[in-house]
Design a protein around this nucleic acid. Structure first.
Lengths: 348, 348
DNA sequence: TTGAAAGCGCTAACAT
DNA sequence: ATGTTAGCGCTTTCAA
């Protein structure tokens, strides 16, 4: 039987309201009394029941974190950073996984609504309208997608995709495939838009393949389509698909980057572990998690401060991208100085 | 302002207790009345407040999941499976990360205690005594370690380590290093015990290196020690360390498996993505997550059913293990039929 | 500075 | 089958 505020009151010879104040409004209670109370509480192992407190204050000190797929390596660093940051501010975090299902997203937000002070919606696949409606039930911060009227944290993937395309074009590629991501993904649309524009600007051709589930399997599944398209380079929606594609190409005896260059997006942990190591666009996922928590918690104070935080991305050149057929002249294959420490140890 | 049970009562012209029953004890209420109530609730967007309900029932329908490191690829599949399984039974999951710090573990359990019906403690680094004490505050299920008197789910890593050692010895290795894991890890002790025994049985020598943090970096950091030890094979505490070691050996020009064989443990997603693909001991992490949730939830009914569930492991032979110096005769390098589908596509 | 009393949203006896 | 009442653990007026 856990100790309640009443047990502490009895033990320290004061009224429950004094105990309450000793914990939640220390300045309203005599220092000596407070010391007594705290000592008694300590002795009894008393800890305030946050749920009971929430019932009256309306603040649960919990937040919800809803992601598309916990096992997708993109998310764990974000979850970890968000949880750690939230805990530092005395918030606990419910984590839930939608399995990329928009229907589950809504149900999850509604189910958590009463138990949290707000929800971080990461890479949602719902419509803007649905999201706006949900935000009337519980404060929402959207990650990886801007929603008009709501606070959001996004990564500048368009910038990343442009850098990736310029990198490929610079290497002499003129026929490039874009391995598209999931339907309903804002990130996917951004990438596509930026890649299309970059291709047009550079006079290159862009073949769009998709939409696809953002998994290794669907990356592999598109290998045939990539080969049929006759391109010399591929930009993938994420690292997972890039890796799946590389594997499938490998099994077909197609060499990366010798015959086909492949560039990923996200710079997840696996990009440094594959061979060849993956050239990819680094997205600051941990920073995004922390920023989203901050927005959610400060959002309580100044309401309707509908901010949009955009985090920068950068191109990390490793070994999966190499010279293309239209290469004219020039320097070594690196078009930019290596950004990542490990990349400089590439062995070719 | 979210609708409360009173709003629904008013709207449907019945007393609040009837509304309550309509939701939590349907058989006690007239079907017609219930339909009315449910319709009114639907209209108002009413959802029972679980925290308020918990205050009186004592059951929160929440569980806590505490892991050593969310970003360690071992955990996401476990978290995902546990969360999904729990949600299927109408439970929400708090996830927290201790960063491998035993002090944080205790604080976390205590902080969550009042808000959950139980906590899944994954790979805890605390002492048994501490864990037992904590279990008086809140029901605990321990994963990856048996604790006397408490329900637990463990993997038979001893069996896995034995298989791995036999595999290496069978390949002709007689000097083998064990890359130890973190201090306080039961899994680490099990592996060490089993590996030591297997080495003795086979007349091989086992050099134990460690303890180490279970990270890629510390795997890399032990490369020198491995070379100095003059062994021809290494069994690592986990895939992460195995991969780190392979990388570091590679940078030194040492070929795996030609010069040194490396075997990991866990069969995380990365084991299939590294080159060479990692020979490793597969641990059923998703199953462990589900089993732990089941134990926690059923534990409520039949108390003190201190069960220990042990899940089997198996050796997955891929490309990072090869013939050793003492190889006598025999068949191709595969000592066992490949267990994993991908392994059969290994290209040598 | 502290106590008394009301009540957050809900369930659980106990009546009827 | 439904209404009444009390109260879960806590905070917060309002008095004193």
């Amino acid at each position: 039987m856990p100790a309640t505020i009443r047990d502490v009151a009895k033990a320290s010879g004061v009224h429950v309201s004094t105990v309450s104040r000793a914990f939640s409004a220390p300045q309203l209670v005599n220092a000596e009394t407070r010391a007594h109370v705290l000592a008694a509480a300590e002795l009894l192992g008393y800890r305030p029941n946050r749920a009971a407190r929430a019932l009256i204050t309306g603040r649960t000190h919990n937040i919800g974190l809803i992601v598309a797929d916990i096992a997708n390596p993109f998310f764990p660093p974000l979850i970890k950073a968000a949880e750690s940051h939230a805990r530092g501010r005395d918030y606990h975090v419910f984590v839930a996984d939608t399995n990329e299902d928009p229907g589950v997203e809504e149900e999850l937000v509604l189910a958590l609504a009463k138990q949290v002070d707000g929800v971080l919606l990461c890479s949602p696949r719902m419509s803007n309208t649905q999201i706006e409606q949900l935000s009337r039930e519980v404060p929402l911060v959207v990650v990886n997608r801007p929603v008009p009227g709501l606070p959001a944290v996004v990564m500048d993937v368009a910038q990343g995709a442009r850098l990736a395309m310029e990198h490929l074009v610079g290497l002499g590629h003129r026929e490039i495939a874009l391995l598209g991501g999931p339907r309903g993904s804002w990130t996917n649309r951004e990438i596509r838009r930026a890649a299309t524009l970059a291709a047009r600007t550079a006079g290159a051709e862009l073949v769009v393949l998709g939409p696809n589930a953002p998994t290794e399997e669907s990356g592999s599944a598109q290998a045939e389509a990539v080969l049929r398209a006759g391109v010399s380079a591929v930009l993938a929606y994420n690292d997972l698909m890039a890796v799946g594609l590389i594997d499938a190409l490998d099994h077909r005896g197609v060499k990366v980057p010798d015959q086909i260059s492949v560039v990923g997006i996200d710079d997840t942990a696996l990009s440094r572990r594959t061979r060849p190591m993956l050239t990819t666009v680094a997205t600051p996922t941990a920073a995004a998690g922390r920023a989203a928590v901050d927005m959610l918690l400060q959002h309580g104070d100044d309401r309707r401060t509908t901010a949009l935080v955009t985090l920068q991305t950068e191109l990390v050149i490793r070994d999966s991208s190499g010279p293309g057929p239209h290469r004219t002249a020039g320097p070594g294959r690196r078009q930019q100085p290596p950004i990542d420490g490990v990349a400089s140890e590439s062995r070719e």
